[in-house]
Design a protein around this nucleic acid. Structure first.
Lengths: 150, 150
DNA sequence: TATTGTTATACTCTATAACTATA
DNA sequence: TATAGTTATAGAGTATAACAATA
């Protein structure tokens, strides 16, 4: 009879980085959501907040390019964060087409709280990895992300 | 002025495994799709085929549990693969509620072709990683996937 | 009563194309 | 003419709840 559950052979799949990446990434995303439950902040929106925090006065297109988010998809994200009171949007003095962003005090507090939650979440989920292994993992992931297009 | 493009600081995001995992995983998925273009096979469906190849006679629920796919979502995947002629479905002789699956010859050929494509795709995308680094990466990803629930 | 497969459904995430206003 | 932001829309991917047939 065929094997059950997690003892089921995966076949060739087991040797591919892509498969394990997809599963691990899904696992981390689900855990992230649980850690941020009731804050209303998701992975993408936390990313936007973090980039604004690190680059006050940055505009929408620059945020999107930094995070790999399409222009079109930025619109809803930005209004979500503006409506929630996390960021303030003003027309750029240098370019009247563009909006520039700052964190509000409320937004700064949300980022600080989010940081603490995410640190705990990663510490919990990655507790079997040593500090060096975590660094190695990040370094390897960055190299994949940075790989040339085909 | 705020930094541009990929030189834009990510802030605290840069220190989180989850962020880099999400980006790297998205990158690999997009590359996978390109590699499998015109075959009609996606990451999930290749996963199903691979598990059936490794466990002939396995049933729908077992496939789903091995791959982390919900029962409800298996239905469309299975009919897609059956309709395409990759797998054959028969009622289990042991349990008349269950269907058991086999690859067809056409399905075996598709898996073989897919394997070659995926190997090339990963070799291309991961060419900056040594064989040991690839193994390390897979091992680390597996440990995350296997981490205890909260 | 639990499990196999099923239907219906909804929500998130991301991609594309076409538009406007400024540069 | 190129760029910033916008709208509308469509396609994946995944999650939940309720049901029928069988164990």
């Amino acid at each position: 009879m065929a094997a059950d559950n997690d003892t089921t052979a995966l076949g060739s799949l087991d040797s591919f980085v892509g498969y394990h990446m997809r599963r691990a990434s899904a696992r981390m995303s689900a855990d992230f959501s649980a850690a941020m439950a009731d804050t209303g902040i998701r992975q993408v929106t936390f990313g936007v907040l973090s980039v604004i925090a690190a680059n006050p006065g940055i505009n929408q297109g620059q945020i999107g390019r930094a995070l790999g988010i399409q222009r079109a998809n930025m619109v809803a994200l930005i209004s979500e964060l503006t409506d929630a009171g996390y960021i303030s949007r003003t027309t750029s003095p240098e370019d009247r087409r563009a909006f520039v962003f700052q964190l509000t005090d409320f937004g700064s507090a949300a980022v600080a709280d989010g940081l603490a939650r995410i640190r705990r979440h990663e510490d919990r989920l990655l507790c079997t990895l040593s500090a060096e292994e975590r660094d190695t993992l990040i370094a390897l992931l960055k190299r994949i992300q940075a790989a040339e297009a085909e």
